[in-house]
């Protein structure tokens, strides 16, 4: 059997101790509601998550590997953009 007719979805899970949803993988599902259930069954079997997002893969606009240099190389030599010259107070979380 094949589910090649079903659209591909990307799955994002927020873990118990996580602050943001993290991409964990992809799956096939016939519709959005079923994609959420599939994500629950495939990616949260070991108590990984407290929240799930699913989004159809074909709705994602992605950068192309061929554009890597024009997009990302120019920031490589601009070390002054990193906030490494500041002391971050201990009581500022999640930095």
């Amino acid at each position: 059997m094949t589910n090649s007719d079903w659209p591909l979805y990307e799955v994002f899970v927020r873990s118990k101790r996580g602050l943001n949803h993290v991409h964990v993988g992809s799956l096939h599902a016939p519709d959005d509601a079923m994609a959420l259930r599939h994500a629950r069954d495939v990616y949260t079997r070991r108590s990984e998550g407290v929240s799930i997002w699913v989004v159809r893969s074909d709705t994602i606009t992605a950068s192309s590997p061929g554009e890597k240099d024009p997009l990302f190389a120019p920031s490589g030599d601009k070390v002054y953009r990193h906030p490494t010259f500041y002391d971050i107070p201990d009581n500022v979380p999640h930095m």
Binding site: R14, S15, G18, V24, Y43, R46, E48, H94
Partner: peptide, 19 residues
């Protein structure tokens, strides 16, 4: 950035809850 926040699987084995 704390590694825990990068992985949905981090922090799974913190106690015996995996049983």
């Amino acid at each position: 950035m704390n590694d825990d926040h990068d992985s949905a699987y981090a922090g799974l084995l913190v106690d015996d809850a995996h049983w």
